[in-house]
């Protein structure tokens, strides 16, 4: 018999240090192996769980890989048309100012088709959380060029690499929204290592706590991988992300407590 290395004697409730939060459903997530979406979902769910706001939170899912996010969060959710999540969230929060409202959007959704909704929700200072997953590619539709695709990066619609002379430049929406008076907190995080995950979770927690202050949008970008779109193994994709995405999309806080930090 193969050795299992199990230690059943320590598997007791008082020794439990980590288990899946009940704010995530038991459905198997539809994301590819190693995709940062799953980790980002879990962090949001853990924050909702820890804050005790499962019955007081309304989430808005986008169009893109996370279109089915409502199957994974055990909270009330609405599915928005492509790019329009901040418009839905605006109305929800204004009609229910006491509820916690967040949108979960990818780069195509937030930074291309939903640019106007994103910028105006941020500029009006809607008291919501926006979680922005940036993996530089359209994952759901099969790896096409996104507004955030890096210069020279190959995608199915820029097969020889993004030529900025022809295809334009990647858009740093996070830096743009940080300049708007309606954003209270803007930060860029990642979820590829334990340390990054713990930091990202603190940022998401702060973003949700900020809703109690009624001071505007808390915007958390998570630079993530797209193993399938990038055509790399999950571990290699994370390495590629560190070497290529992070130099362009620098991690760290951009705006805290309504003040630009850099």
């Amino acid at each position: 018999m193969t050795e299992t290395f199990d230690k059943p004697e320590i598997r007791t409730p008082e020794n439990l240090v980590y288990s899946k939060t009940k704010v995530l459903t038991d459905n198997v997530m539809s994301y590819c192996p190693g995709c940062g979406h799953g980790t980002a979902h879990r962090l949001i769910a853990e924050v909702i769980d820890e804050m005790g706001i499962q019955n007081n939170t309304i989430g808005v899912a986008p169009v893109g890989c996370s279109v089915l996010a409502y199957n994974f969060f055990d909270i009330d959710m609405q599915q928005a048309a492509h790019g329009r999540a901040p418009a839905l969230a605006t109305a929800i929060k204004r009609l229910y100012p006491g509820k916690f409202v967040f949108t979960y959007q990818g780069d195509g959704d937030l930074a291309a088709i939903g640019t106007a909704e994103t910028i105006h929700a941020c500029n009006r200072g809607e008291n919501i959380v926006i979680i922005f997953i940036n993996n530089g590619i359209y994952g759901m539709t099969g790896g096409q060029m996104a507004p955030t695709t890096l210069p020279g990066m190959p995608t199915s619609t820029s097969p020889y690499g993004r030529d900025t002379q022809i295809m334009g430049n990647p858009l740093k929406m996070t830096e743009i929204v940080a300049t708007l008076p309606g954003t209270y907190m803007v930060t860029r995080q990642a979820v590829h290592t334990p340390a990054a995950v713990r930091k990202a979770k603190k940022a998401i927690r702060m973003a949700f706590e900020n809703q109690k202050l009624n001071k505007g949008v808390s915007f958390v970008e998570i630079v993530s991988n797209c193993n399938s779109g990038w055509k790399l193994s999950p571990v290699k994709a994370n390495e590629w992300m560190v070497n290529n995405m992070f130099p362009f999309y620098e991690l760290g806080d951009i705006k805290m407590n309504g003040e630009l930090v850099k």
Binding site: I58, V60, Q78, A80, A81, R84, A87, L88, A89, T90, A91, I92, L95, Y96, A116, E117, H120
Partner: peptide, 15 residues
């Protein structure tokens, strides 16, 4: 925009 307005209606109606 009108697009945002109807989607605000969607969000509010869904509540």
């Amino acid at each position: 925009s009108e697009v945002a307005a109807i989607n605000m209606v969607y969000g509010g109606a869904a509540c």
